[in-house]
Nucleic acid binder design. Structure first.
Length: 887
RNA sequence: GGGCGGAUAGCUCAGCUGGGAGAGCGUCGGCCUUACAAGCCGAAGGUCACAGGUUCAAGCCCUGUUCCGCCUACCA
C-alpha cells in the first residue's frame, strides 16, 4: 500500500501550475497544417486586447476547450485558433486615459505618435487576457496566435475593402448616422443601446408668417428646432387642409419655413404636425430629400451648438435645450409640456447620449451579402444550435440595413481610400497611390477614418488562416467545425462573418454555430462593473481551482438558459473534484504496475455492473458533447463518479481489495478498477483537465499525457464491453436489499453498532439464488450479521418489515422493537404506495385508454399495478400483524 | 410597437420527439465505517404561475391571463 501517492485533500494550485506548461512544451495543442483523416477546427472569439477575463469569456472558452479536448481524444487533428481583437474605440480610450495620467493627450501627440503609443501599450499589457485563458486551461494552438491589427490580417482587410468597393458593395455618402459626441465618432446602428427614458414632449407653436394663428408641433428635442427647415403635415389631414402651403415663422430664429405635406407624418401622434430637422433626424432627412429642403446643422460634432444656431452658438446641447425652452416660454411659443417616456440611444462604449447627425461616412451595402447568408442557413450549410436562434438570425438578416463602417478615431485599420488634392479624385487601393491616376498630381491624401473593429473580426475565420493566400491551413480547416459564442454578438459578429466568409471564401465559415447563454449574477442580473456584482473568474480559480470552476460552468450550461453564477455552486463542484481525487487515492493504493488481467469469467457482480454502467456513461457523455448538451454530459459524469463508482462500486469491492476474497478475485477486480478509472478519467478530462492529468500520471501503467490516451469509444477493450442486463438486474436487487435494511435502521433509530440478523423471503427462485450468491456484499454494505433466504412462510413476530420488488425483508427485533413506531412506518409506506397506485388503477379502468394507448404502455401499467398491489397487500398484512402484537 | 425566453421542492435549476415528478444546495435525524467530515447513511419536502382547450393520457401541445427578464424598432 502506498499512501503518500496523493495528498489527502486536493490542492488545485499546486497541481494546475505544473500541467499547462507541460502540455505546451510537449506541443499537445499543436495542429497539423496538413489534412489528417479527421480534422476539427474552432476559431476563438477574439477577446479585446484590453480585456480582462470575465465570466462570459470563462464560459465561452471552457465550452470550446471541452470540444477541442474531446475531439483530440477521439483522434482528430484539432486546430483551436487563438488571438485578440484590436478593439478600436475601447483600446483608444484606455490608452488615452493612460496618457492623461501623464498630462498628455492624443491631439498634442499627433496621430503617428499616438498609434505608436498604443502599440507600446499592447506590447506591455496586451497578453494579459491570453495568460488568463491559459489559467483556464484553454488548449489553443498558441504558436498560431493572431491579432486583428497584425500585418497579415491588415492585408486581408485592405483586400476585402478594395474588392467590395470595386463590386459596388462599399460606398461613401452623406447620411444621418449615430454620432457619439464623447467618442467623437460615428457608430453603427448596432452600437447604439436604446433605453427607455422619462423625458418631455414639448408642444411649440410656430406662428403663420402672413396670417393669424399658427401650427403647434411636438418634439422631445426642442433644441433641434434651431435647425428646422419645414413643418410637415399629412396630406389627408383635414385639420391642416388650409395650413399646408402656408409659411410659418420659426421662433427664436426668425426664419420663414414652409409647411409641406408628406405621408410619413403620423396623424395620430401629438398634434399631427411634425417639425422637420433634416440634419438631425433620419426621417426628417428623408423628408428633406423628397421636398428639397435645406439642411441646417445646428449641433456640431462636439455636441455643442454651431454658428447656425445663432445666439445659442457654443452652448452644450442639453444646456441649449434648457435655454431654448426658457426662451420659448418667454416668447409665448411654448404651448404645453407633457411627460413622455421614450427610448433614447446611448453609445455602447461610453454610454453618452447618441446624436443623430448628418455626415459623410463609408457603408457596406449589406443586402446582397445578407441574402447569401440567409440561404446558407436555410440550406443547412450552417446550422445554428439551439435552433431557436435561427429565427432571430433570419429576422435580423432580412431587415438588415447598410452597415456604417467608418469611425473617426485613430486606432484601427485606416481606410484604404485616397483623395487627390487637386482634382478630388477618389482612389481606393491596396497601397498608397504615388500620384493621382486622374490628373497626375502627387501624393493623394488618405482618408483619416478607420474601419469599424467588427470589419476585421468579420474576416477572422479565414484571415487568421493566411487568406488571401491559399494556405494549407485554410485547405485543412476552413470551413471551421463550429463557432462557440454568446448570443450578444450574434449580429455584431456571427452574421457578418457569415456574409464575408461566403463572399470571399465561397463557403460558409462554420458548420455549426453553438450559441450559449450569458452568465449572470446570483439574482439574474447582467454582471457589470458599475453594478459591482462582477465575480472575477480569476479569483474563483484561486479559491476553488480551475477544474471546479470549469465543471460548474459546464454543469450549468443548459441550452437556452442564462447561468446564474454564485460562489456557492462552485464550492459544490469543488467537492466533486475532491471526491474524485480521493477515490483515485483509494485506487492508487492498490493498483500496481503489471498486474495480471484475468478474463471476464472471474469478474464479480460489482465488477460486471460497473463495467456495464461505464459503457452507458461513455455513450451518454459522447452523445451529449456531440449535441452541445454540456450540462447533460457533466451531470452524467457527476452521477457516475460519485454515486455509482464511489458509493456503490468502491464500497462493494473494499473487502476484495483488502484481501478478504483471495488473490484471484483481487486480481480480477483490480483489473476492472483500473479500466474504469482509466476510462472515467478520459471521459472527464475535457471538463476537468488538470486533476485528470495529475491522477493519470500517478496511475501505474500509463505513459505520457492523458491528452494522448485512447478514448473508450476507440479503445478495443472498452468497445468490447457490452451492456450486462443480468448484472444490472442483480445489482439492483442487492442495492434494494441494502437500502431496505438501512432504511429500517434509520427510521427505527437502531444504533449502527446493533448487530442485525436479516431474513429475506421471496417466492422467486432466481431472486433467492442471486441473493445467496451475493450475500457477502449485502452483509458488508448493510452492516448486518447474517442474512437468511427463504421461500415465503412463517413471518417473524417481532420484526421490522420492508417490501422490496424482489420479496419481503424482515429485521427481527426480539424484545427491542417499538411496535408503535413500526406501525407508523408501515402506514407511511402504505400511503405512499396507495398514492402511486391510484392513478395507475384509474388509467387501467378507462376503456379508452386500453383501446387507444400503445400496447407496451398498457402492459407497463398493468405490471406496475400488479407490483404495487402486491406490495400493498403485504404491507397491509404486516401492519395488521404489528397492530395485533402492539396490543 | 414587434419579437423571444422564463415561471417545476425553502434556494438554484434539469426534465431531449406527450405515457412512472428529478438533481445539487439547504433542512431534519443518525454516524470519526481502515479514499474522502470538502465525507458516509437515512428522511422530510412539489395543485409543475393562473384559466380554459386538444388527447385515452399534458410539466411538455394549443388559446388566453398575470408577473419577471431579454432582444429589436426612425412615431416626432
Amino acid at each position: 500500500m502506498n499512501l503518500d501517492l496523493l495528498n489527502k485533500g486536493y490542492e488545485p494550485r499546486e497541481v494546475e501550475s505544473r500541467w499547462y506548461s507541460f502540455w505546451e512544451k510537449e506541443g499537445l495543442f499543436d495542429a497539423l497544417a496538413d489534412s489528417a483523416p479527421k480534422n476539427f477546427s474552432i476559431v476563438i472569439p477574439p477577446p479585446n486586447v484590453t480585456g480582462v477575463l470575465h465570466m462570459g469569456h470563462a464560459l465561452n472558452n471552457t465550452l470550446q476547450d471541452i470540444l477541442c479536448r474531446y475531439r483530440r481524444l477521439r483522434g482528430d487533428n484539432v486546430l483551436w485558433m487563438p488571438g485578440t481583437d484590436h478593439a478600436g474605440i475601447a483600446t483608444q480610450n484606455v490608452v488615452e486615459r493612460k496618457l492623461a495620467e501623464d498630462g498628455l493627450d492624443r491631439h498634442h501627440l499627433g496621430r503617428e505618435k499616438f498609434i505608436e503609443a498604443v502599440w507600446q501599450w499592447r506590447r506591455k499589457y496586451g497578453n494579459a487576457i491570453t495568460n488568463q485563458l491559459k489559467r483556464l486551461g484553454a488548449s489553443c494552438d498558441w504558436k498560431r496566435e493572431r491579432f486583428t491589427m497584425d500585418d497579415g490580417l491588415s492585408l486581408a482587410v485592405r483586400k476585402v475593402f478594395v474588392q467590395l468597393y470595386n463590386e459596388g458593395l462599399i460606398y461613401r455618402g452623406d447620411y444621418i448616422i449615430n454620432w457619439c459626441p464623447r467618442c467623437s465618432t460615428a457608430l453603427a446602428d448596432l452600437e447604439v443601446e436604446h433605453e427607455e427614458t422619462d423625458g418631455n414632449l414639448y408642444h411649440i407653436r410656430y406662428p403663420y408668417l402672413n396670417a393669424a394663428g399658427g401650427i403647434v408641433v411636438a418634439t422631445t428635442r426642442p433644441e433641434t428646432m434651431l435647425g428646422d427647415t419645414a413643418v410637415a403635415v399629412h396630406p389627408e389631414d383635414d385639420r391642416y387642409r388650409n395650413a399646408a402651403d402656408k409659411t410659418v415663422m420659426l421662433p427664436l430664429m426668425d426664419r420663414a419655413i414652409p409647411v409641406i405635406r408628406d405621408k410619413y407624418v403620423d396623424m395620430s401622434f401629438g398634434t399631427g404636425a411634425l417639425k422637420v430637422t433634416p440634419a438631425h433626424d433620419p426621417n426628417d432627412y428623408a423628408i428633406g430629400l423628397r421636398h428639397d429642403l435645406p439642411v441646417i446643422k445646428a449641433i456640431g460634432d462636439d455636441g455643442r451648438m454651431t454658428a447656425a444656431a445663432g445666439k445659442f452658438e457654443g452652448l452644450e446641447r442639453f444646456a441649449c435645450r434648457r435655454a431654448v425652452v426658457e426662451e420659448l416660454k418667454a416668447g409665448g411659443y411654448l404651448v404645453r409640456v407633457d411627460a413622455h417616456r421614450h427610448s433614447v440611444g446611448h453609445c455602447y462604449r461610453c454610454k453618452d447620449i447618441v446624436e443623430p447627425n448628418l455626415s459623410r461616412q463609408w457603408f457596406v451595402k449589406t443586402g446582397p451579402l445578407a441574402q447569401e447568408a440567409i440561404v446558407a442557413v436555410k440550406e443547412g450549410r450552417t446550422r445554428i444550435v439551439p435552433e431557436i436562434w435561427t429565427a432571430t438570425y433570419f429576422d435580423w438578416m432580412t431587415n438588415i440595413r447598410d452597415w456604417c463602417i467608418s469611425r473617426q478615431i485613430w486606432w484601427g485599420h485606416q481606410i484604404p481610400a485616397w483623395t487627390c488634392r487637386d482634382c478630388q479624385e477618389l482612389i481606393v487601393a491596396m497601397e498608397a497611390p504615388p500620384t493621382c491616376p486622374a490628373c497626375g498630381s502627387a501624393a493623394p491624401v488618405q482618408d483619416t477614418d478607420v474601419l469599424d473593429t467588427w470589419f476585421s473580426s468579420a474576416l477572422w475565420p479565414f484571415s487568421t488562416m493566411g487568406w488571401p493566400e491559399r494556405t494549407p491551413l485554410l485547405e485543412t480547416f476552413y470551413p471551421t467545425s463550429v463557432l462557440v459564442t454568446g448570443f450578444d454578438i450574434l449580429f455584431f459578429w456571427v452574421a457578418r462573418m457569415m456574409m464575408m466568409g461566403i463572399h470571399f471564401m465561397g463557403a460558409v465559415p462554420f458548420r455549426d454555430v453553438y450559441v450559449h447563454a450569458l452568465v449572470r449574477d446570483e439574482e439574474g442580473k447582467k454582471m457589470s462593473k458599475s453594478k459591482g456584482n462582477v465575480i472575477d473568474p480569476l479569483s474563483v480559480i484561486d479559491t476553488y481551482g480551475t477544474d471546479a470552476f470549469r465543471f460548474t460552468l459546464a454543469a450549468f450550461a443548459a441550452q437556452g438558459r442564462d447561468i446564474k453564477m454564485s460562489a456557492k455552486r462552485i464550492e459544490g463542484y469543488r467537492h466533486f473534484i475532491n471526491k474524485l481525487w480521493n477515490a483515485a487515492r483509494l485506487c492508487l493504493m492498490h493498483l500496481t504496475e503489471g498486474q495480471p488481467e484475468p478474463g471476464p469469467e472471474s469478474r464479480s457482480l460489482p465488477d460486471r455492473w460497473i463495467l456495464s454502467r461505464l459503457k452507458t456513461l461513455t455513450r451518454t457523455v459522447s452523445e451529449a458533447i456531440d449535441d452541445y448538451r454540456f450540462n447533460e454530459a457533466a451531470g452524467a459524469l457527476y452521477n457516475f463518479v460519485w454515486h455509482e463508482f464511489c458509493d456503490w462500486y468502491l464500497e462493494a469491492i473494499k473487502p476484495v481489495i483488502y484481501d478478504r476474497h483471495g488473490e484471484e478475485q483481487k486480481a480480477a477486480t483490480l483489473a476492472v478498477l483500473r479500466r474504469v478509472l482509466n476510462d472515467a478519467l478520459i471521459l472527464l478530462h475535457p471538463f476537468i483537465p488538470f486533476v485528470t492529468e495529475e491522477i493519470w500520471h500517478k496511475l501505474p501503467g500509463t505513459q505520457g499525457s492523458i491528452m494522448l490516451a485512447v478514448h473508450p469509444l476507440d479503445d478495443k477493450r472498452s468497445v468490447a464491453l457490452s451492456h450486462d442486463r443480468e448484472a444490472e438486474a442483480q445489482m439492483e436487487l442487492v442495492i434494494d436489499i441494502i437500502t431496505g435494511v438501512r432504511n429500517i435502521r434509520g427510521e427505527m433509530d437502531l444504533p449502527p453498532a446493533l448487530e442485525l440478523k436479516v431474513e429475506l423471503q421471496s417466492e422467486d427462485k432466481t431472486v433467492r439464488a442471486s441473493v445467496v450468491d451475493h450475500r457477502d456484499i449485502i452483509l458488508n454494505l448493510a452492516r448486518i450479521k447474517s442474512l437468511t433466504v427463504d421461500e415465503p412462510g412463517r413471518k417473524p413476530a417481532s420484526a421490522a418489515t420492508t417490501i422490496i420488488p424482489g420479496g419481503t425483508l424482515f429485521v427481527p427485533l426480539e424484545g427491542t422493537i417499538d411496535f408503535e413506531k413500526e406501525a407508523e412506518r408501515l402506514q407511511k409506506r402504505i400511503n405512499k404506495v396507495n398514492a402511486e397506485l391510484m392513478p395507475v388503477v384509474k388509467k387501467l379502468n378507462n376503456e379508452d385508454y386500453l383501446k387507444k394507448a400503445p400496447a407496451d404502455v398498457v402492459a407497463g401499467a398493468r405490471a406496475k399495478r400488479e407490483q404495487l398491489h402486491l406490495t400493498l397487500q403485504k404491507l397491509e398484512a404486516t401492519l395488521a400483524r404489528v397492530r395485533e402484537l402492539a396490543k
